[in-house]
C-alpha cells in the first residue's frame, strides 16, 4: 500500500483522521438534507422543515417519512456495508481489486434471491425478512466455494488466484442467472433486471429493520478487529511471525465481509464499485490503519451511495436511474484516473 505516495493522508496535519471523519459526517448531513428535498413531488426546504417538525399535510408526511427517509437511511447503510466489506476483502486478500462484486459474492447472493423470486409466488408475505437470510446463504456458499478453490496448502491464500477464481465464479453465476431470468414472466423479469442493476428499491422502514442489525453488529465488530486486519495485511508469513492465529482470524473476518455484502445485496441488488472505490478513497484520505480506515470506509460508502441515489432520482425525472448505474458512471472515470495516477 506504499505506492500511494502523495495522498492527502501523507500530507496530513495533526488530528487529521478525526477532522476528516467529522467533515465526512457533515457532508453526509448536507447530502441527507439535499436528498430530502429531491424527488418527483416538489417540497420546498421550508416545507421539509415544517413536515419534519410534525406539522406538514398528511401527503407531505407520507412522502418524507415513508418514501424519502427510509430510502436515505437504506442508502447510507448499504453504502457503508459494501465499503466496509470491500475494505476487509482487500486487506485479507492483499489485492486492491477485491470487493464483493468482483469476488462473485454479490452474484451469489443475488442468485439466491432470484431463485427465490422465480419459484415462490410474489404473494407470499414473508419475503422481506427472508431475503437477507437467503442472500446471506448464497453469499456464504459462493465465498466458501471461492475460498476452497483458491486455497493451496503450501502457499495459503494467493491474492491473485482469489480474485481470478472470484471473477470466474461470478461469470458462471451470472450465466445461470440469465438462464433463469429468461424463463421468468415479463413482470418478474423486469423486477429482476432492475434489481440486478442495483436499485434502492426497498424504500420501506421494514427493510431498514431487516438490514440495520447486520450493519450495527458487523461494522463495529470489524472495527474491533482492526488490529488483526493491520497485521493480516502484512502477509501470511509476517502475520504468523507476529503471533496472529492467521487462519482462524481470516475465516472470521471473511465471514464478516460476506455477511455484510449478503445483507446489503438483499436490499439493494448488485451495486458494485462502492465496495471498490469506497476503500480506495478512504485509504488515500486516512491511510492504512484500519482503526480509522474502516470508519472512514463506512462514512464514504454511505456518502457515495446516497449521493448516487439522490442524483439518480433527479437527473432524468420523472424516471429514476438505479443507484448502481449512477455509482458506476461516477466511479469508473475516477477509478481510471486513480490507476493512471498510480502508474506515473
Amino acid at each position: 500500500m506504499s505506492k500511494y505516495s502523495l495522498t492527502p493522508y501523507e500530507k496530513r496535519q495533526p488530528h487529521w483522521g478525526v477532522t476528516l471523519l467529522s467533515v465526512l459526517g457533515l457532508l453526509i448531513v448536507v447530502i441527507v438534507v439535499v436528498s430530502m428535498n429531491t424527488g418527483y413531488m416538489r417540497l420546498s426546504p421550508s416545507e421539509v422543515l415544517h413536515t419534519l417538525s410534525g406539522q406538514g399535510t398528511p401527503q407531505q408526511k407520507l412522502i418524507l417519512f415513508d418514501f424519502r427517509l427510509p430510502r436515505i437511511v437504506i442508502s447510507l447503510l448499504v453504502g457503508a456495508g459494501f465499503a466496509v466489506s470491500g475494505c476487509i476483502l482487500q486487506s485479507l486478500s492483499r489485492n486492491p481489486l477485491a470487493e464483493p462484486a468482483t469476488l462473485g459474492i454479490s452474484a451469489g447472493a443475488g442468485f439466491a434471491v432470484i431463485l427465490f423470486i422465480s419459484f415462490v409466488p410474489a404473494s407470499s408475505a414473508a419475503s422481506i425478512f427472508m431475503l437477507p437470510l437467503l442472500a446471506l446463504a448464497g453469499a456464504g456458499l459462493t465465498a466458501a466455494l471461492i475460498y476452497v478453490l483458491a486455497f493451496r496448502r503450501e502457499e495459503g491464500l494467493s491474492p491473485t488466484r482469489l480474485v481470478l477464481i472470484g471473477i470466474a465464479v461470478a461469470a458462471g453465476i451470472n450465466a445461470f442467472q440469465l438462464v433463469l431470468a429468461l424463463r421468468l414472466d415479463p413482470e418478474n423479469y423486469q423486477f429482476v433486471a432492475i434489481w440486478m442493476a442495483g436499485k434502492i428499491w426497498g424504500g420501506d422502514w421494514r427493510f431498514v429493520q431487516a438490514l440495520l442489525p447486520w450493519i450495527l453488529i458487523l461494522v463495529p465488530f470489524s472495527i474491533y478487529k482492526a488490529r488483526v486486519l493491520n497485521v493480516l495485511n502484512l502477509g501470511d508469513q509476517t502475520s504468523t511471525g507476529l503471533g496472529a492465529p492467521v487462519e482462524r482470524e481470516r475465516l472470521l473476518l471473511l465471514a464478516t465481509a460476506v455477511a455484510l455484502a449478503g445483507a446489503c445485496v438483499s436490499v439493494s441488488g448488485g451495486i458494485g464499485f462502492v465496495g471498490l472505490i469506497g476503500p480506495h478513497l478512504a485509504r488515500r484520505l486516512v491511510g492504512p490503519r484500519h482503526q480509522i480506515l474502516l470508519p472512514a470506509c463506512a462514512l464514504i460508502g454511505g456518502l457515495l451511495l446516497l449521493t448516487a441515489d439522490t442524483l439518480g432520482r433527479w437527473i432524468l425525472q420523472p424516471s429514476e436511474i438505479p443507484a448502481g448505474v449512477v455509482v458506476a458512471i461516477i466511479g469508473a472515470p475516477y477509478f481510471l484516473y486513480l490507476l493512471a495516477k498510480s502508474r506515473a
Binding site: L62, A122, E187, G202, G203
Partner: peptide, 17 residues
C-alpha cells in the same frame, strides 16, 4: 392488475397512499 407488479413491499407503500 398483477401481483408481481407490487411485490416486495410496494403494495404496503401504495396502500399508505
Amino acid at each position: 392488475g398483477s401481483e408481481s407488479s407490487v411485490q416486495n413491499g410496494l403494495y404496503d407503500q401504495l396502500n399508505k397512499v
